[in-house]
Write a protein that binds this DNA or RNA. Structure first.
Lengths: 377, 377
DNA sequence: CTGAAAGCGCTAACAA
DNA sequence: TTGTTAGCGCTTTCAG
């Protein structure tokens, strides 16, 4: 402590001394630099002010382009800042202002095509607003999701974008974000009952058009590989499946619907089981491209022709759907656009001045991308 | 200002008053809560201290489990914190300490299988150390890379992991990070000449084993689709290609090597051009799975049999290599492990106490994953 | 084991 | 247009 005070006093004395004593800027600069290096001190706004013998506030204002500072002074200050290799301390600024120019994004997984595209979209918009992005993975667990929210809130992010993990059943953490007044957008996998901004895919209609497509091509007994129903998107896809059947005068058969078939392995196993028997169905509509892929591989292994004998349609339009043969018909969710939309909505709330902001729900229309795997039975 | 001071005075008076006056905790609590809600004030350490009539420092210490606080006091303080719904302000703590528990990651693209796996690996390790992760995309541009570095430095991240963008040619920004004493690890795409931690793939040996594999299967005139040579990884893959040929007694033919063929489209076009003529080569070694895919599609379109007439090998072991048929032989770079290794190395430097830390270079061995596309001509 | 108090670097209200 | 000054919430040194 004593040493520190002593240092401070000497420091001030020296800087004042050299400021007054030496006329040549170069000399002053070199002394200043030596001083900084010696003390491993980072250059602050105060240093610039002392160096130019002006007020700290003037420097602060100049650096943030405040209108009330003359262009001349601004230039001088900015040049000096550069000369002294000044780096703003965002930590201090954020702390002082009680907020950051950072938004948080919580996704189940980053290495999933859908989410990495969403992130791409979010980043694009965040960049435009000059905000940075901190990304958290929940890894589909409730625990990590809680921790992520906790961290983001503690770090006073300006807003949060979230897609709920598969494991999460309680919306308490989402509620607490909203109660704290932190802008929030739920996207894709959401708690419907929570009053917040939401960006959704129209999963019902996406599934509807997928199944309708199969029916139009002559397929009749269509299997559905569903996800867990407690997640809204899978529930909706299931509804769309049923609706398409009913609208075409077909009766949905519960025995053709299988919950929790989402991975390649699950799709493979289940297909082997169902299509290995007599009186087999003639099509598969999978809620995931991966289980659709598993189905295709199983069908190939059983020497069943796609699309001749069995049609297959997936969901999400993963890149590989276009690479395999036959190409897998799938539903494109416009994932990049979804990220952008969610981010724009978030900024709408962040930048909103009005006290009573009313949250919105936006729904994006998915598109059926028709490839060979469903082209007629 | 005056109003604020007045508020402060009244605030203190009231809290002191209620602290002294009321005995029943419940009553006190409800008053406190009402007060906080009314003022939209977030609960601070000081509030807890005032509430319990103890020192701020004690509260601070208790909450961070300082050893010199009795278990009894700790429990009391923690319970109270919970009761008052206290949220730590990381902004203030970080600012005070002059550092954060955050590491920065700069990658060219997030929606590339390799990088999303690296991120996964980094996140895993960061989690273990209880650090959070801020991810920046350079989108393969120099400008974004600079901005990312700038932001990360201003936010006083504890360390930076970076893989250089395709556009970046000058290492000035990397140097400045190191000069500032911020721990840094370059991975995959690096500036060799910069003295820093590095994690590399042994691209030379990866390419070597890929080409050796083709030769062993009887292929002789092997085309190489290369990336830009100024990027170290593509240079190394090219070297590996040549070395494998030479070691097998074959003479590398410059006319079979094509720079900057990395995408599916480029691979398709170039393959059409080369293999459409008489006296065509009999294999392709692509520095990217995507150009290898393009080659496969082109060969199919020309009715050239894979692997019967032409063998194809890619690089990176993208997931789709396993889904297409024939499966594409490729080189696996252990991307998740790379992320973990890079992150561990970073933490080694971050947590290092020793003044003169000597940076390390680690090299990971890639593995050839043999599939049908190269199984014999 | 606990308390008192300084101060991190910056912003913004108020004064000039 | 510029200067003065208080204080954001926390940690930490020093003193008991």
């Amino acid at each position: 402590m004593i040493i520190f005070l002593l240092y401070k006093i000497i420091y001030n004395a020296i800087t004042t001394y050299i400021t007054n004593r030496f006329d040549t800027k170069n000399n002053l600069l070199s002394l200043f630099r030596k001083h900084c290096v010696l003390k491993k001190k980072t250059v602050t706004i105060d240093d610039i002010a002392r160096y130019l013998n002006i007020a700290t506030s003037t420097v602060s204002r100049a650096l943030s382009d405040h209108h009330s500072i003359s262009d001349q002074t601004k230039k001088l200050i900015k040049d000096t800042a550069k000369k002294l290799n000044y780096r703003p301390n965002s930590l201090a600024a954020n702390f002082r202002k009680g907020k950051t120019k950072t938004i948080g994004l919580v996704v189940p997984r980053i290495n999933r095509n859908f989410f990495s595209n969403v992130i791409h979209g979010v980043e694009y918009v965040a960049n435009q607003f000059e905000y940075s992005l901190i990304i958290c993975q929940s890894n589909e667990t409730y625990k990590s999701e809680l921790e992520a929210i906790e961290t983001l809130m503690n770090n006073r992010v300006a807003g949060i974008l979230i897609s709920i993990s598969r494991e999460t059943r309680k919306p308490g953490h989402i509620k607490s974000v909203i109660e704290k007044g932190i802008p929030l957008v739920q996207f894709d996998r959401v708690f419907e009952e929570i009053k917040s901004n939401k960006v959704l895919n129209d999963n019902l209609n996406g599934a509807y058009s997928a199944v309708k497509g199969l029916i139009d091509q002559g397929y009749r007994r269509i299997v559905h590989f569903a996800g867990p129903y407690y997640i809204n998107i899978y529930q909706d896809r299931y509804e769309g499946y049923k609706k398409a059947l009913l609208d075409s005068g077909l009766t949905p058969d519960e025995k053709l619907v299988f919950e929790n078939i989402l991975t390649r392995e699950e799709g493979y196993e289940k297909t082997m089981e169902i299509f290995g028997k007599a009186n087999r169905p003639d099509a598969v509509f999978a809620a995931s491209d991966f289980s659709a892929l598993g189905a295709m591989i199983a069908l190939k292994d059983m020497n069943i022709k796609i699309p001749g004998e069995v049609g297959v349609v997936g969901y999400a339009n993963e890149p590989f759907t276009d690479y395999i043969s036959p190409g897998l018909t799938s539903v494109d969710q416009h994932s990049v656009e979804m990220g952008q939309t969610a981010a724009r909505l978030l900024f709408e709330e962040i930048l909103n001045e009005d006290e009573n902001y009313v949250p919105k729900t936006l729904t994006l229309k998915p598109d059926l991308v028709i490839r060979d795997s469903s082209s007629g039975g």
